[in-house]
């Protein structure tokens, strides 16, 4: 794999091709290079830093007592629990929103696709690059939150924050899986970014609300419901699904996703969308 051997085929010596895994690595490498050169990565990085700055300023200005952040867990719940899903969703929109559709609209896909590599290598390579770029921003965002946490509450970081961190990464994986799949449904870059943004910023939460409040059905099929574990795990005690008697004696349930359930939803979303996305891209025509 590392050193392609020369074997003579026909009149020209054709070096044997790298493995598909090595080709995925190549795609990832150049995709990342492209990210770091392009504005998108830095815009998102700045957004992440701005959100962090706002939190830092708010906590610094009002102080933890005024904000009623009496424990380290409460602090992380306030900071991380309220904001990380937005950072994850923005990563999904920025890096996944037009990941595949852009290759068609800008015709950049045509440069690669005629080469001897599997389509899936392109898809997976691009996905890993998007995940890597997102994780860099994610790590910076987490570092600023933890830095503040240590400043106010010392180095004993509650284990629940570790759990929440892991769930956030899982959510990021699922969101990117979904946005990649979604972007392979479109051939227009701006269209797929727009639709992805609407879905994650409004539509999913709205459906979740309608389904759970009005229809009184647990919205286990909505990705954002699964992502509830990121905030829930930072709450003490962990919230549970509750039924109360509403006005008129009607029973009203408030649903809270449990950890195993949340993990299942996120993993399920990732696996299903990854498989469908790959199949779609395999079958897509570069007309």
């Amino acid at each position: 794999m590392s050193k392609p051997s020369l074997k003579s085929v026909g009149p020209v010596a054709v070096p044997s091709l790298p493995t598909s895994i090595a080709q995925v690595g190549t795609i990832t490498k150049y995709e990342l290079l492209n990210y770091f050169r392009s504005r998108r990565f830095f815009v998102l990085l700045i957004i992440g830093i701005v959100i962090s700055a706002i939190f830092t300023a708010v906590v610094g200005y009002y102080g933890i007592t005024y904000l009623n952040l009496t424990s380290a867990l409460g602090f992380y719940s306030f900071w991380w629990g309220n904001s990380i899903t937005l950072v994850v969703i923005l990563s999904g929109i920025f890096f996944g929103g037009d990941a595949i559709s852009g290759e068609f609209q800008n015709k950049t896909g045509y440069f690669l696709v005629g080469n001897p590599l599997r389509r899936s290598s392109i898809y997976i390579g691009k996905w890993i690059a998007a995940l890597t770029a997102s994780l860099i921003i994610f790590a910076i965002y987490a570092a600023i939150a933890v830095g503040n946490g240590i400043y106010y509450f010392g180095t004993s970081i509650p284990y629940q924050f570790g759990d929440s961190l892991v769930f956030s990464v899982l959510y990021l994986v699922a969101v990117l899986g979904f946005t990649f799949f979604f972007s392979s449904l479109f051939k227009s870059s701006s269209m797929s970014i727009l639709v992805t943004a609407i879905l994650f910023l409004f539509a999913f939460s709205l459906i979740e609300l309608i389904v759970s409040r009005l229809a009184q059905i647990e919205p286990w099929f909505i990705i954002t419901y699964g992502a509830g574990i990121i905030g829930n795990v930072l709450m003490d005690p962990y919230p549970l699904t509750q039924s109360t008697r509403g006005p008129g004696g009607r029973e009203v349930s408030t649903f809270a996703v449990s950890i195993p359930q949340g993990i299942a939803i996120l993993v399920g979303y990732f696996v299903i969308t990854a498989v469908i996305g790959l199949l779609l891209f395999e079958r897509k025509e570069f007309t």
Binding site: Y30, L33, N34, R37, S38, N106, K107, T108, G109, Y110, F111, G114
Partner: peptide, 12 residues
């Protein structure tokens, strides 16, 4: 191959 003038990532 060279088919239908592909584009290269502009940042590269």
């Amino acid at each position: 191959s060279l088919i239908e003038s592909p584009e290269i990532y502009p940042a590269l």
